[in-house]
């Protein structure tokens, strides 16, 4: 649906050139919710703006439903934009217009007739739960309500793609949850492809199917939300995942490792899906001559799949521990040794 092909972007301000994006290639499939996370300045904002041509790449191309933006002229791009709705962190509503007029605006621009506008705006305001606010002005609404107006406006032209630019970053946690639920509903009801950027990993966990992590203008990691959350590969990826998963090795475990004179066998075990419910640890104790001691653990759900994270110490001979590990391998349990410099 959206395809970034080797996109690079340089900004030139006062003779100083900065690379905002470096050779980014990504593909967003139709109907999915794709999240891009990164710290501020990572380039995610520039990237999302390439989809509706608020920014243009220095090199590379962006394709929307197979259509190249680089090869399209201004008029064609305007037509493509009708298929792309966008919501913003600061809502970007017209303060001088009523809620009704704000939502109607994209239709007015296209010269849709009044009756049709009326039908569509009423339907949309009902959908976002603001049916009674059509005559209000944006400054009479709460942040969550403003974003609902933004969403209704973005959907006015029946777009195939919805871009969300930090859409919940200015909202409180409860409102954020409500808006995310609304976005999920939009995705499921209308099959709209959603591309969102955020610095909040909880947003990604809540609604995304796939996620890309950006750093310094590059995509450094990409995969399903489950893969990234259960097994982040880069340091930035890990630190993002840790913000919501609390996967970091607790301080006391590291202290244990540091202060203990002899070698200790401490492992992180990740249980996925069915294996999360299985009594693997008790099996290990029965089968092998080791004692297991759970130092830390939690079980969460990722995309409706149970995901367990345990930090376990195996107390026993090195050889026994080695056979425990091969047993874990045979059970498809992801594990990694916790070392002194672990994070």
């Amino acid at each position: 649906m959206i395809e970034f092909i080797d996109v690079s972007k340089q900004f030139n301000r006062k003779g100083v050139t900065t690379d905002a994006l470096k050779n980014v290639s990504l593909k967003v499939e139709p109907g999915e919710i794709f999240g891009i996370v990164g710290f501020s300045g990572a380039g995610k904002s520039t990237l999302i703006r390439m989809v509706n041509r608020l920014e243009s790449p220095t090199t590379g191309d962006v394709k929307i439903a197979g259509q190249s933006l680089e090869k399209s002229n201004t008029k064609e791009i305007r037509t493509i934009k009708r298929d792309i709705g966008m919501i913003f962190q600061h809502f970007n509503l017209l303060d001088s217009k009523t809620v009704y007029k704000n939502v109607a605006m994209p239709l007015i621009l296209q010269g849709v007739d009044k009756g049709e506008i009326d039908r569509r705006v009423t339907e949309l305001l009902d959908f976002v739960g603001l049916g009674d606010k059509s005559k209000s002005y944006p400054d009479e609404l709460s942040g969550g309500q403003k974003q609902r107006v933004g969403i209704a406006r973005a959907l006015a032209t029946n777009p195939k793609i919805l871009l969300c630019d930090e859409a919940t970053s200015a909202l409180d946690p409860e409102t954020t949850t409500q808006i995310l639920e609304l976005l999920k509903e939009i995705n499921q009801t209308y099959g709209i492809t959603i591309l969102l950027i955020t610095h909040e990993m909880s947003v990604v966990r809540e609604i995304c199917d796939r996620v890309a992590i950006m750093e310094k203008g590059r995509v450094i990691e990409e995969g399903t939300v489950f893969d990234i959350f259960s097994n982040p590969k880069t340091d930035t990826g890990k630190s993002f995942v840790n913000t919501v998963m609390h996967n970091e090795v607790p301080e006391f475990v590291l202290k244990l490792l540091h202060e203990s004179p002899e070698e200790r066998h401490i492992y992180r075990l990740n249980f996925v899906d069915d294996s999360a419910g299985e009594p693997v640890l008790s099996q290990v104790s029965k089968k092998f001559d080791v004692e297991t001691s759970v130092l830390f653990g939690n079980i969460t759900q990722l995309q409706d799949i149970p995901f367990g994270n345990l930090i376990v110490e195996f107390i026993g001979q090195g050889r026994e521990v080695a056979s425990v590990l091969s047993y874990l391998d045979s059970r498809n349990i992801i594990y990694s040794e916790v070392t002194r410099d672990a994070r």
């Binding site: 934009k81 966008m86 017209l94 994209p106 621009l109």
Partner: peptide, 30 residues
């Protein structure tokens, strides 16, 4: 007039004339 309003206009595919008449002037009227 807030840059965000211009960005919204641009995202909607407004022409320059529409941007001025429908977005910028009403927002600046006061």
């Amino acid at each position: 007039v807030d840059d965000g309003v211009l960005e919204a206009a641009n995202a909607m595919g407004a022409t320059p004339l529409q941007t001025i008449v429908r977005f910028v002037l009403p927002e600046a009227l006061s």
